[in-house]
Write a protein that binds this DNA or RNA. Structure first.
Lengths: 228, 228
DNA sequence: AGTGATATTATGTCTGCACATAATCCGAGC
DNA sequence: GCTCGGATTATGTGCAGACATAATATCACT
């Protein structure tokens, strides 16, 4: 019996799929499974922990392990740098800096970044191109107080890439939504105003201070896709 | 030094953040770190493996472990059942079955499901309501060949929930996009045609056969959000 | 019946060791 | 200089045993 932890995970998953162990059911203990599969408990633990992380199992000390009742499936998506995203489609990436200036952000942006109204930020507007055609319109607020100085020329270096290269790993959140193109977006992306656009909004933080808030308005046809 | 694997992970992450170990740098071997932290190699392995899964580190046998150059950040999002999603907002969930019949799917759907053109499927159209207001328009193709019979009355049980409860854990893929509302969607959701809608498309498979393909057209204002 | 201390139990984590595996390094041979 | 193949090495995985932790179960006592 060649039982690596992945084999055990597969077997457990199989039993769940064929409803040997239906949703909500308590499955045998790690010790019992280790006995059955003829391996160490640690190996079973590895397999079950992995399934629990994927949302298939729910584990609690002493209570045991049960099959998740409502499988809140977890999809993981990669958030690549825009250049990589374009190149992964086999297209050539380029970008144009449309504007960059110091400015006081509108109140909703300031509040979303957790800043007092009136704080001065950098505003950078970029259009990314795939094979010369508009791909995504990037509007970004940067907090100069927490960035390494001096800021580079964002006409030469994409703000997107400069940040991941020069600002250390951070936390943040991402939101996806759909909005009709406003006048500026329609103009820049070359679509009719009101056209449905896929919007990504991301804010990034160090431990304490906000670093950047970016809004990406993707050209029509853009999809975010992932396997589950 | 009370060093559990989470402490080690935190310390490694700290060193990356303060650029002790800048992007691309090779970090010490597991053995060296184990010596430094005064713990077993397995414990260091656990910590580093976790960071690698998160996309912060890249590990290769013999080559060693290095800090990811371009941090392809991985966001994980939960895909709950629609009822849970509505209730999580503190709203009351209800749904209305708009139509359910046997039908031959259009070619794009059949091909996306990997079925020969002409296969007969079930077509179910549902409107989900949050506090009585349109929330999402669900159009779903079901493959009766692989479903437990008899199919229930989808006017009483939401197809969404019946599937997660009665069809075992499966694989599939999800795609998000933005589209203008077509006539039917505009009508059902009570918006103007062409309004930007957030679209979720999901296909689900057993090991071999397609189970269902569903398209969710969300009412304006819908967002998918996640922390990174 | 209710309540609180205690025993029990399943998972969580760690150790120390071993061998497997993959990738690089490096030298022999051409 | 080049290629091929073996030595080296860092990570991947496994095992047996141990203790920690959290949650449940039980039982004595009020």
């Amino acid at each position: 019996m060649i039982a690596g932890w992945e084999d055990i995970r597969a077997e457990v998953l199989r039993r769940i799929r064929v409803r040997d162990w239906p949703p909500g059911a308590l499955i045998p203990t790690e010790e019992a499974l280790a006995g059955e599969f003829g391996c160490a408990r640690a190996t079973v633990n590895r397999a079950l922990r992995d399934l629990a992380e994927a949302g298939v199992l729910e584990r609690r000390r002493k209570a045991g392990t049960r099959v998740a009742m409502l499988p809140v499936r977890k999809a993981t998506l990669d958030i690549p740098v825009i250049r990589q995203e374009v190149e992964a489609r086999g297209q050539a990436h380029a970008f144009r800096l449309l504007s960059a200036r110091e400015e006081v952000p509108p109140v909703p942006v300031a509040s979303r970044m957790g800043l007092a109204p009136g704080a001065r930020l950098w505003w950078v507007e970029t259009l990314h191109l795939a094979d010369g055609r508009p791909f995504v319109h990037e509007t970004r607020w940067l907090n100069p107080a927490v960035l390494p100085q001096p800021l580079p020329d964002f006409g030469k270096v994409s703000a997107n890439e400069w940040l991941v290269a020069h600002v250390s790993y951070t936390t943040g959140d991402i939101a996806f939504s759909a909005e009709g193109a406003d006048g500026r977006e329609a103009d820049v992306l070359g679509v009719a105003p009101g056209t449905a656009l896929f919007i990504t909004e991301r804010s990034t933080w160090t431990a304490e201070a906000p670093i950047t808030f970016v809004r990406l308005a993707h050209a029509p046809g853009y999809r975010v896709q992932t396997m589950v």
